[in-house]
Design a protein around this nucleic acid. Sequence first.
DNA 1: CAGTGGTCTAGACCACTGC
DNA 2: CAGTGGTCTAGACCACTGT
Lengths: 262, 262
Amino acid sequence: MPASLAAVLGTLDPTSDRAVFRQIADHLRDAIEEGRLGENEQIPSETMLTEHYGVARMTVRHAIQVLQSEGLVLAEHGRGVFVRPRPPVRRLASDRFARRHRQQGKAAFIAEAEQAGSRPEVDSIVIREERPSRDISSRLGGIRKVVARHRRYLLDGQPVEAAVSYIPLDIATGTPMAETDTGPGGIYARLEETGHALDHFDEEVRARMPMPDETRALRLAPGVPVFHLVRTAYDTSGRAVEVCDTIMAADAYVLAYNLPAR
Amino acid sequence: MPASLAAVLGTLDPTSDRAVFRQIADHLRDAIEEGRLGENEQIPSETMLTEHYGVARMTVRHAIQVLQSEGLVLAEHGRGVFVRPRPPVRRLASDRFARRHRQQGKAAFIAEAEQAGSRPEVDSIVIREERPSRDISSRLGGIRKVVARHRRYLLDGQPVEAAVSYIPLDIATGTPMAETDTGPGGIYARLEETGHALDHFDEEVRARMPMPDETRALRLAPGVPVFHLVRTAYDTSGRAVEVCDTIMAADAYVLAYNLPAR
DNA sequence: CAGTGGTCTAGACCACTGC
DNA sequence: CAGTGGTCTAGACCACTGT
């Protein structure tokens, strides 16, 4: 941390209409964006800030809370408040479910992670029969019973993605799709073996702030939104054969798509 | 608002480890999610909540602030705090820039909005020569000068999208692409007329919390993330002929894409 | 005008971290 | 142990809304 707070942060403008806590938040935000406070660096403590600005501690805390909800800093109890590093980003390409990527015999996530030199894991696997929600049911053509495959994906021990796949009961029953281990190539390989050659996927993307359970499952920092993906797989007969509902930490992903001009 | 606060919210659990402001936030969140507090309904005032729970006003405000940063409620100075309605959502399909949609002679945004019965507007139009950022430059093949087209899109008076298009100077100069009015079909129609028949687009999607200037430009409520789209247009010779950088209120959009299975 | 939320103070006690 | 952030109180004054 630099010696002079005034050099990093400046001073309050008493003639300004802008609330004091917003001015302090602005100073800190500017310092972060211009690199005067670098990634993982500790920002001045609440005590130092109250003394520097001559305000009450609650005012300083309010300013820091603004930055937390913007996802710029992370408070660690007993240690300090730190500038959040930009996490390594995974790029998801729109051809990631193409057949040629399945032929090595690995599921998309595992193959891609190993390629990138990370250690992939899948945990919290729960497979069970369920009655799907109205939304999922209508995407699968009005079906009433499905096999639901819940799981969580981790990279180097960090959870990055939580997903649920829904497969019509008549398709999944008696196949590895209803077992924990789906075998080489994952469920898309099994679908193709059982007479459901895949034609295309429809993918819907939303972004929002996480619910509290999602914050826990993905160990999300405050101020990080989530991507909510709903992907439907269609076979060559036009039947919807799987819906995958995925929540991802938005700061860890870039989604890349190819759009036709014709 | 119902007569009994206890029926809507319940009471504190003094044996719980959970902080009081979190318990209050949980009660309000549950009431919203289960419909005991409906869309646009006013939640109990700070005064009522302090009396009901027997806590200091700052504790109640802290709870409400949590809900604000989750995007669930909206505080209106002097009026009250209200349950945020889910705004009408625009669905952006991955074929939205297909040539056939351009042949009516309208730009994609205008045509689509009128189709949906909304009143579209485009304002804040600024067209000027710029030196592109490193990122934009490299997407356009290392070019040093571009025509930048800044504009903001509104539906029924509400800003929904702010975008900047970058076009290499040699392509745009002397054409309507460098003017305010690009003519029927927009810049993509002009590109095709000037020997740059379009082949495909690459689109990258990110989501994050907005910067303060984006909050202003899109009149974003607290707790609403933004989509950040960067779309590159390629002509049939493989040259990148335009990059469009767009910020959108994430609660107003669903992005829909088609992924190949081959 | 009464009622609402917005800002700010000056304390208190607690829990966690690292030396 | 000293220093950090986390929670909470009990006030104060202000600005905005609607009657």
